[in-house]
């Protein structure tokens, strides 16, 4: 049984999330040529899912540090270079095109990209050509899993599939993907209720801003939870 303050804070978070965050991000997407909107996703759900998966794998350090935030990664609210436009120019942003390429060809094209003066071929242990190949080949089954998902168990399986099968996706990025495709951009044909998404939630708290605010709240409130 949650304590009263936790419950009240939770109510406030729901209000902020639904009344401020979701409209804010929807506006960002609607106002940018690269934004993911209902119309765009419904027109080509498989291609949109592929693109979202790929962009999510770059929405991490050090790429966000180089770009100064997630906006250039997603091509939102910027007029300068964006990752979608760069990948599109390299012939790597459309699912059909990527499915025709070999891993070596993708690797070569990513190595030639210069996103804020850095190539896109690899980072740490991730070889992004493998990410592209696996993501492109998984889109169909991911879409199917999303559409069939009804319970928390299904969500857990989908979350696990994302981070276990696609190189470059860890638990945190997998959680963000579940949040985007099943909660915030619910245009892929899924009917899972938001309450069933809980198995995929906690890893997003490892992100810097989330953990920072949680820590500050904890310091203010101490043990009064």
């Amino acid at each position: 049984m949650p304590k009263p303050i936790a419950r009240k804070l939770a109510e406030k978070l729901v209000k902020i999330y639904t009344e401020r965050k979701l409209p804010h991000y929807a506006k960002l997407n609607a106002g940018s040529p690269e934004g993911f909107t209902k119309a765009r996703i419904e027109r080509a759900p498989d291609n949109s899912l592929f693109q979202i998966v790929i962009l999510a794998t770059y929405d991490r350090m050090p790429f966000t540090r180089w770009a100064g935030g997630f906006e250039p990664i997603w091509g939102l609210a910027i007029s300068e270079e964006s990752l979608p436009s760069m990948l599109r120019a390299a012939g790597l942003f459309e699912l059909d095109s990527v499915l025709k390429l070999t891993e070596e060809a993708i690797d070569l094209r990513l190595a030639r990209c210069s996103f804020y003066k850095h190539h896109l071929a690899s980072c740490d242990k991730t070889r992004y050509s493998k990410t592209f190949i696996k993501a492109a080949n998984s889109v169909s089954s991911l879409l199917s899993d999303m559409r069939l998902a009804k319970t928390a168990t299904d969500v857990k399986a989908l979350h696990m599939k994302l981070y276990k099968e696609i190189p470059g996706i860890g638990q945190t990025i997998a959680s963000k993907l579940v949040m985007y495709i099943l909660r915030e951009l619910p245009y892929f044909g899924s009917s899972v209720h938001p309450r069933e998404l809980h198995p995929a939630v906690k890893p997003i708290l490892k992100e810097y801003h989330a953990s920072n605010f949680a820590r500050e709240l904890k310091n203010v409130m101490g043990t009064a939870w």
Binding site: L9, Y17, T18, M179, R195, H198, E207, H209, K218
Partner: peptide, 25 residues
Amino acid sequence: MVDKVFEALKSLGDPFAIDAFYYID
């Protein structure tokens, strides 16, 4: 602390609302 808020969000039916932490910060 976060666990209790998370449990409360689950009972409210929208656990991903915890991402408001990220958004607010």
